[in-house]
Write a protein that binds this DNA or RNA. Sequence first.
DNA 1: AAAAAACGGTAACCCCAGTTACCAAAAGCA
DNA 2: TGCTTTTGGTAACTGGGGTTACCGTTTTTT
Lengths: 230, 230
Amino acid sequence: MFNKSMKTLLTCELFKGMNSAELISVLTCLNPKVYSYKRSELVAMEGDQLTGLGIVLAGDVVITRENAVGSRIIIATNGPGGMFGEIAAFAGNYIWSDTIIAREACKVMFLPGEKIVGSCENACVSHKLMIANILKIISLKALMLNKKIDYLVIKSMRGKVCAYLLEQFKKQGKQTFVMPLKRNELADFLNVSRPSLSREMGKLRDEGVIEFHRASIKIKDLNTLKTLAE
Amino acid sequence: MFNKSMKTLLTCELFKGMNSAELISVLTCLNPKVYSYKRSELVAMEGDQLTGLGIVLAGDVVITRENAVGSRIIIATNGPGGMFGEIAAFAGNYIWSDTIIAREACKVMFLPGEKIVGSCENACVSHKLMIANILKIISLKALMLNKKIDYLVIKSMRGKVCAYLLEQFKKQGKQTFVMPLKRNELADFLNVSRPSLSREMGKLRDEGVIEFHRASIKIKDLNTLKTLAE
DNA sequence: AAAAAACGGTAACCCCAGTTACCAAAAGCA
DNA sequence: TGCTTTTGGTAACTGGGGTTACCGTTTTTT
């Protein structure tokens, strides 16, 4: 069980390039804390004081943000090896900028932010590597946010749905695939209402562009889909 | 004239903590190129190969992104000392992710991306400082993108306008101020159409919340504005 | 200084998507 | 296994904001 977590951690971008021994040495230095959460449980709350950098060891979490009115948006989802709270932790902004919720039973490791960026005597070699990793992580995060903006800028329901389906197709490499998000999650991800999303998907189905049942989707007319995605 | 540019550069986040001598030493090492642009001229084109990290020496540039349909969005504007292309340059993604346009006659310095992140013998001391600066720059950029997302997630016209006005008030510290963006620029920034924006601003004026003429704005009822901004 | 372009306010029209409500199917849970 | 909750498809209604068009004002350009 502990070994399983170690394997997951070795796949984490933060520890990239390290072997087991180095990882253990770094970890003992960083004083990590592991917590478990049940399905739908709150892992972190937007605005609260930062617990630290979060690394998912098992399960799935959703990174969301909500405004005063109550409409929420899904920024991303994270499986094992995924991180959250990087920006706040590395930027020294010790407040959660997002709300994190467990999609299912999951286990999360927290690393205190100050320790990561600050210097450390015990694991200096690995620490230098970590700084390089951090630079890459933040850059990738920024690129991800850029992409997120691209989604939000699309104005029509149809454009959003098609752009999303097209990206899933590119990511999964098959025209028949399972959607990683439930309908209301997808609605929150695209920043639209669920009934409107279902309505549009129904239209696309009627027009013969796609076919679907619940989470499984089949792209029937890829070319049309590409056109519609702008 | 050269001194003026140097002064601007010293205020740039990338060179923070350096003195003139160090800056000159770093610059000679980085082999910068300076170009001038006329009003409305294209500085960089989304999708094109990266020229390098851009630093504005004089004038104003707009960072925009547009989709196939032609609707464009303004990500940010940058004055002297401002940077663009950081993410691509530092992430090693050598393609412009945004389109950069000169809002007015301006002068821009480009630093080749590889040189900044790569190691360098001549200016080692300053170079280490730069790496630290870069980490901070990227983090701040990510925070900025986060904020941009917050804007885009707001669904109502009214909410967007009020949120924007409120932020300007906080930034400028006065209830009467000049808007840094023209109407159609603001529309692009908020991802709405110009006539709809004007219509909403007219409504807010009729309701006594604000008062305006062209670029000058006066917030008459700050409390209501805060409420409306959610 | 005159001509051209950009800027910005306003009005009419209309469609897209949000809202609400309801129900059937699937999945958790006891 | 049966009960409860979640998930998701669908329909009717409504309104907010996009689109288009027009025009006066301001700014740029030559």
